[in-house]
Amino acid sequence: MATGADQAVGMGLVGFSILLFAYYTVWVIVLPFVDSDHEIHKYFLPREYSVILPGVAALILILCIGTFIGVVTWKNRKPKKVD
């Protein structure tokens, strides 16, 4: 069975993704329909950042995955046989 920690982590992931989805949807889909002098605009970065930030996040993710794969293959490489 999933232990308490597993359940906490899993539900944490679900909650985080739901929050992210809600915030990002409001940012990208709803905000253009709101007047630009409305209160709500204080809680969001300028619109360009809705593409720049995911781009930066994707870049960091790809770098991390690349580093991970590099390290794993480097550690697992077979030493060449010396004749």
Binding site: M1, A2, Q7, G10, M11, L13, V14, F21, Y24, P54
Partner: peptide, 24 residues
């Protein structure tokens, strides 16, 4: 980018849900 982020959120939520309800 929005669709990509939504897909990422969905994937993350699926992984989280499966972790929380993992059974023997």
């Amino acid at each position: 980018v929005y669709l990509l982020v939504v897909f990422g959120c969905y994937s993350l939520a699926t992984v989280g849900y499966r972790v929380a309800t993992f059974n023997d």
